[in-house]
Design a protein around this nucleic acid. Structure first.
Length: 571
RNA sequence: GGGCCUGUAGCUCAAUGGUUAGAGCAGGGCGCUCAUAACGCCUUGGUUGGGGGUUCGAAUCCCUCCGGGCCUACCA
């Protein structure tokens, strides 16, 4: 097989707090699924993610925690890194958008864009809060809606009547941070990225991507063509914490004290993260992944993200890369996801509603979550987490279909032949028939995984597990053992060999369990090419151990407890 | 307001305009006894949100109405 090279990035999670299961299934988890699959197929993979650390919310969260921003971010990065590890997210590097590498690279891109005439200065007025000592983004200002009278209307939009607002329109405006009404419109100068100049180029590029998910292209087209078309975008902010506005390593006259906007520097971190990966001693050459003049021409680059991130990845970031005039690698495929809702509503951090990543790992192993989330990934529309559905899927798919299969095979063998692959007999028509079915299904599974059809992949994998139980029922080694022990030995040898096969195929979904299965069989993972051959990996005499039950069922009591615990404070 | 997505079995979801709309779960029946009372086989269940249209043929394309969701450029 040709060795391909896959660059894979997950949308980088914001530093402000621990993410919920909806965030996880929208980017990091499917990205990990794809990365593990491509590695399993023997391809070269660079899988990158990072924390997105700049912006107003980070500064406010640090202030609330009573810590300097750099310290707060460093701590939260560690927290997120540990949780990611707990979920088995197999990043080659988990970087930080505040890294020195990203500072240099972001300033470099700004210089190139400036040289190419794609940056202009704009003088504008923005709401300034004297009490808070800072400019406030529109949504940090609340007041009474001039249209409907709603008293908690945000400066960008009224949550009650959904009309778009300008903060100056609000009646009795005040800061949501301090409550202060001491606000004024103050003049400030900012840099804008001239995306509008690149509209045609971007549109032609989007149009060429006919295989992208509708969700991705429809959002991109909307931004390209809505109203007056693609608008130039401010890429600087008046904040303390961020990447100082410079042209390369030179000062930018008139922009002292300002930083780049987080949505300018965050995607650049995808590249800087590869440099961090090298500087951390994990890799030798980042350019062969990112520079088409240094070998990245044969790289396939895939991005994973929730739908809210699509405009930045389809338009702003490509504009940055193309506008630089340098040979950077552009994304080849953007896989986007809808949202996961929680039990009839949205996940809510402020109301403590829904399950967050740290809590999930406290109550159940990562594979339980990975399986449910991936097999219900919100691909075609928003999806919904309910505890009943979660309980049913985990108990049926994992415990009954896969876990019990491994249990019944290994325990039967131990009681009749000992913990060693039995000798005798040969495969017949039944085994041939199973090999044919598995071959068909595994090739279909590979097709779905290549296409990043997550739910279809999960469905096919489950059918592959079911085939093992069907075989046992038909072969009935417990019956043949009485008449023809050699035949039973061949049957159980065949069934035992399904275990490492299943482990290899299942590893992208449930890596921890897959490892347990392989360790019990004392084998390494090996992606099956020829299935008949793959089922000869454990010959007669090969020792194994009966593993503990792979999955515990979720009891009704536990489910009800969790349902209560994570319901949050409703209204 | 505008745009996009979505509505299919009790539940979660499939189905390049082409046989009788399919899976899993749940429900019912039978079988098996190796296994975590697990597994296998069979089976009930549909006016594809409503109405109209195009077509030899519509879940699929068009119009309209109803419901759900998302986005709408200063949260990230």
């Amino acid at each position: 097989m040709d060795m391909a090279r896959h660059l894979i990035t997950s949308a980088i999670p914001y530093i402000n707090g621990i993410k919920h299961l909806g965030n996880l299934v929208g980017s990091q988890l499917p990205a990990d699924l794809f990365a593990r699959y491509q590695r399993g197929r023997g391809h070269e993979v660079l899988f990158l993610c990072a924390t997105d650390e700049h912006g107003t919310p980070a500064e406010l969260a640090a202030a609330k925690a009573g810590k300097p921003v750099p310290e707060y971010c460093a701590e939260m990065h560690q927290v997120q890194a540990r949780i990611a590890e707990g979920f088995g997210l197999s990043f080659d590097h988990f970087g930080r958008s505040s890294s020195p590498e990203n500072h240099r690279l972001t300033q470099h891109f700004a210089a190139k864009l400036y040289e190419n005439g794609l940056i202009r200065e704009v003088s504008e007025t923005q709401m300034y809060s004297r009490a808070d000592g800072r400019f406030l983004p529109d949504r940090y200002i609340e007041g009474t809606c001039p249209n409907c009278g709603f008293e908690s209307a945000r400066g960008d939009q009224c949550d009650n009547c959904t009309k778009q607002l300008d903060p100056v329109d609000l009646i009795n405006p005040h800061s949501t941070i301090s409550g202060s009404t001491d606000l004024e419109m103050r003049e400030t100068k900012h840099l804008y990225l001239c995306q509008s100049q690149m509209k045609d180029e971007l549109e032609a590029w989007i149009d060429s991507k006919t295989d992208w998910p509708v969700l991705t292209t429809s959002i991109a087209k909307k931004w390209l063509n809505d109203g007056d078309g693609l608008q130039d975008r401010g890429i600087t902010r008046d904040l303390d914490w961020g990447i100082p506005v410079k042209r390369g390593d030179k000062d930018w006259p008139g922009m002292e004290g300002k930083v780049f906007y987080v949505w300018f520097d965050a995607p650049i971190e995808y590249i800087a993260c590869a440099q961090e990966w090298v500087n951390a001693g994990k890799g030798g050459d980042w350019a062969r992944w990112w520079r088409t003049d240094a070998g990245a021409g044969d790289v396939t680059y895939t991005q994973f993200m929730g739908k809210d991130n699509v405009p930045f990845h389809t338009l702003s970031f490509p504009a940055t890369i193309l506008g630089s005039g340098e040979p950077w690698k552009l994304v080849d495929y953007i896989k986007s996801f809808n949202y996961l809702n929680y039990d009839g509503g949205q996940f809510s951090t402020s109301r403590g509603r829904g399950v967050f990543m740290d809590q999930a790992l406290e109550i159940l192993p990562a594979d339980y979550w990975r399986w449910w989330l991936l097999s219900h990934a919100p691909e075609s529309s928003d999806a919904e987490f309910t505890w009943e559905n979660f309980q049913a899927s985990v108990n049926k798919d994992l415990a009954d279909v896969l876990g019990n299969f491994v249990s019944r095979v290994t325990k039967f063998c131990r009681s009749k032949f000992g913990e060693v692959v039995p000798e005798g007999g040969a495969w017949g028509a039944q085994e041939k028939s199973v090999i044919d079915e598995l071959t068909t299904r595994i090739r279909a599974y590979e097709g779905h995984m290549e296409a990043m059809e997550v739910r279809k992949s999960a469905g096919e994998l489950r059918a592959i597990w079911v085939a093992g139980n069907e075989y046992l029922q038909e072969a009935a080694p417990w019956a043949t053992f009485k008449e023809d022990p050699a035949r039973a030995a061949a049957q159980i040898r065949f069934a035992l060999n399904l275990i490492p096969l299943y482990a290899a195929l299942s590893a992208p979904f449930i890596p921890f369990t897959a490892r347990t299965m392989l360790e019990a069989m004392t084998l390494d993972a090996d992606w099956p090419g020829d299935i008949a051959q793959a089922l000869e990996r454990m010959p007669a005499g090969h020792g194994f151990a009966v593993p503990d039950n792979l999955f515990a069922k979720i009891a009704d009591d536990s489910r009800e407890d969790w349902q209560q615990r994570f319901a949050g404070t409703r209204d």
